[in-house]
Write a protein that binds this DNA or RNA. Structure first.
Length: 245
RNA sequence: GGGCCUGAUCAA
């Protein structure tokens, strides 16, 4: 099965969907059953090819192969819908999921909330965030990070920081992604002192800054014309290989 | 009892 899945994605890169379905028939005639992951991959591939209808059909086809569509597959579908800007459809799908399976898993929530953020529907994102809390679902860093960045993208850094505080109050540990987002926020706000301070926070939290962290800071500095500062940081980090924009 | 194969978040 593992080998087959690997083959599938290779065919997917060539967008050869006919060959993919042939391969599935092949799998079945051997005693090798396709899994839910197999179909999740196919949905993802159709999504990249912008073939929405085929994504839905894949759900039905999965059943003919004896695979019941599960959260794994629905998550893949949600992502495709959001990337195509089909917010309405995605909401409907989530609604259906909640009726069938009252408890949604955390990945599905994060995919959903992230999708809303990317589509700049932050008011909705907040509503669903609360709904998520009402169910006994504990938000993780993925969720908070998406919201923080989402609010930053719509020029509401204050709200972004509110979620950062909430994250800490609720005992969710910030990760590198969180810190990278914070660096960006402080750069946008011209509060570079606080941006610098984050690096010591990170060290204290045992969180290693990565290439993205430095890149974010450098871009932020350059954007505000602080070339001398950027230069200083740049020479201070010779280990990593980051590119100067 | 164990595994969990490409389902979720960041800069350029």
């Amino acid at each position: 099965v593992y080998v087959y899945n690997a083959l599938l994605m290779k065919l997917g890169l060539e967008k050869d969907f006919v060959a993919i379905w042939k391969l599935l028939d092949d799998m079945q005639s051997n005693e090798c059953a396709a899994t839910n992951t197999t179909f999740a991959i196919i949905i993802q591939l159709y999504g990249k090819a912008h073939l929405l209808e085929e994504c839905w059909q894949t759900l039905e086809k999965a059943e003919t192969f004896g695979v019941k569509p599960d959260s794994h597959m629905y998550t893949a579908l949600l992502r495709v819908l959001f990337e195509a800007g089909k917010v309405k459809k995605a909401k409907q799908l989530l609604g259906r999921m909640m009726q069938i399976n009252s408890e949604l898993d955390i990945r599905m929530w994060s995919t959903f909330i992230h999708g809303l953020c990317k589509n700049k529907r932050l008011q909705d994102a907040e509503i669903f965030f609360k709904q998520m809390l009402d169910q006994e679902c504990v938000p993780n860093a993925y969720i908070y990070n998406s919201l923080i960045l989402g609010f930053l993208d719509v020029n509401d850094p204050d709200r972004a920081l509110i979620f950062y505080n909430m994250m800490q109050e609720r005992g969710c540990k910030p990760d590198v992604y969180t810190y990278n987002a914070l660096v960006r926020i402080y750069c946008c706000l011209d509060r570079f002192v606080e941006a610098y301070a984050l690096f010591s926070n990170m060290e204290y939290a045992g969180c290693e800054p990565n290439q993205v962290t430095y890149n974010t800071l450098l871009s932020g500095l350059l954007e505000k014309g602080k070339i001398a500062e950027a230069d200083e940081w740049f020479s201070g980090m010779q280990k990593g290989r980051q590119v100067d924009p």
